[in-house]
Design a protein around this nucleic acid. Structure first.
Length: 107
DNA sequence: TGAGTGACTGTAA
DNA sequence: CTTACAGCCACTC
């Protein structure tokens, strides 16, 4: 059981706010919840994320699908992103900054 | 209780 | 430009 379950829920809450066709980074979410240095934990939390959380829209700061291997199937994450109008080459999103969505901006 | 781990990030070479 | 290293926090065993 987690002591700071609130941390996870914060991550989910922000992740759910990611608009369709947009993407963000782990660090961005971490900052949004006030845990800028816990970007790694964001990814860890997303690993346990419920289905209503679009974890596939969360990438690392380079725009690489680092968590692709954690999704069911082999390239589900990429397919989901491509389905949202994004272009992915070599596990990396093209025009990452262009589609980047800052959680703090939405707050 | 302590050590190990990770869907990361920023800085250095 | 790319590659390497260290710092970071929360979680698991």
């Amino acid at each position: 059981m987690s002591k700071d379950k609130n941390f996870y829920e914060r991550v989910y809450e922000v992740a759910r706010q990611i608009p369709y066709g947009k993407i963000t980074s782990y660090g961005a979410i971490a900052k949004a919840i006030g845990a800028a240095r816990s970007a790694r934990m964001v990814g860890y939390a997303l690993k346990n994320s419920p289905e209503d959380v679009p974890a596939h829209r969360v990438l690392n700061r380079k725009g690489v699908l680092t968590g692709k291997q954690h999704f069911p199937g082999k390239n589900l994450m990429q397919q989901l992103l491509e389905n949202e109008g994004l272009t992915i080459v070599n596990n990396q999103v093209q025009d990452f900054e262009k589609h980047f969505w800052n959680p703090k901006t939405s707050l």
